[in-house]
């Protein structure tokens, strides 16, 4: 498998397969996220990177023996470990009898939303999700720290020229996407607010929203996309998302309850839970969307910078 492009495509298919596998295992929320995030964003990012770092892997003799030894040993330990595991799917396994029953039985009374995963995600273990949002935020900041390019020289006339030349070449796909993007955005908002009742929630919505913007950027060029959503605005949204999430917790703290205790947010506890979950889902959605867009813009910006340098070198090369 020397061609990295094929490798990445296969990884995309693998993620999609694992998403369908999760659906078969009744883990719908996870399947949705895996499909959107795993198959969508990571494959996309890898493709962008491959355009920058070259498609073919150098045929090098890789050192199999050490790897084989480590792998076989760890595999053996794991297989050794699986013997006492509860069998697949039996109902009286310890995890189904200790903590989970309360979530399944009381979540309707305490939080009042049908999708138990969202209720656990947003209320019982809200701090985990907060940590997760911060992870995404860190990744965004990390990528920005690594790849952010200085202020780009604004050459308007050149971009419009590129735009026109691209126009007649990508006519079909541009028209179709123009039709599709509103629906994708609408669908993202639907997923955002539908998280309480069916599979969905902040993460998936954010990613779909970002996918729409990225589609737009790929087709209409980075500079036009930057005009639509400029860099500092995205950063503001990313920060605002995390702060919103945190402030929900601080508000509940000010009202006397523990951090992330939504019961005190409104008069009656269940309404408070609803409000709390809505707000933090919104925070999650904003952060994820803006961070994904930020990451893609950075990657694309870096690629554009590389291409400019190549052009500049070629011009110098030719002129020499």
């Amino acid at each position: 498998m020397k061609d990295l492009f094929a490798v990445v495509m296969l990884l995309g298919i693998y993620s999609l397969l694992s998403a369908s596998f999760f659906v078969a295992m009744d883990a719908v929320d996870v399947a949705f996220t895996e499909a959107a995030v795993g198959a969508g964003i990571s494959t996309l990012l890898m493709l962008v990177v491959i355009t920058m770092t070259g498609r073919s892997e150098k045929t090098t003799r890789h050192k199999p023996w050490l790897a084989l030894l480590v792998v076989v040993f760890t595999g053996g330990v794991l297989i050794y470990g699986t013997f006492d595991m509860p069998y697949f799917g039996i109902a009286d396994a310890p995890i189904h009898s200790h903590v989970a029953p309360r979530y399944i039985n009381e979540s309707m009374k305490e939080i009042g939303i049908p999708n138990i995963v969202t209720s656990v995600l947003a209320s019982y273990r809200a701090f985990d999700t907060f940590g997760e949002v911060v992870v995404i935020f860190t990744a965004g900041i990390g990528v920005m720290a690594l790849l952010s390019v200085g202020r780009r020289p604004e050459e308007d006339e050149k971009t419009t020229a590129i735009n026109d030349s691209m126009h007649e070449e990508y006519l079909v796909i541009r028209i179709v996407t123009k039709m599709l993007i509103p629906f994708i955005l609408l669908y993202a908002l639907y997923v955002q607010f539908h998280g309480d009742f069916g599979p969905g929630g902040g993460f998936q919505a954010g990613v779909i929203f970002a996918a729409a913007i990225i589609l737009y950027t790929m087709l209409f060029g980075l500079t036009t996309a930057r005009k639509v959503i400029n860099q500092s605005f995205i950063q503001f949204i990313a920060a605002a998302g995390v702060l919103l999430y945190g402030c929900v917790g601080i508000v509940s703290m000010l009202n006397g309850a523990n951090f992330f205790d939504y019961n005190v947010l409104a008069s009656d506890p269940v309404a408070g839970q609803h409000l709390g979950i809505l707000l933090i889902e919104w925070g999650v959605g904003c952060t994820v969307a803006s961070v994904m867009i930020m990451i893609f813009f950075n990657f694309a910006g870096r690629r554009e910078m590389q291409q400019n340098n190549e052009k500049v070198n070629n011009i110098e090369g030719d002129s020499l």
């Binding site: 911060v134 935020f137 900041i141 950063q235 503001f236 990313a238 920060a239 605002a240 995390v242 702060l243 945190g246 917790g249 601080i250 703290m253 523990n258 951090f259």
Partner: peptide, 17 residues
């Protein structure tokens, strides 16, 4: 206990602003 973690955590996005 929670303030210990939240203070630097909230400081990070504020710094971005």
């Amino acid at each position: 206990p929670i303030l210990q973690v939240i203070v630097p955590l909230m400081a990070a996005p504020i710094c971005l602003l």
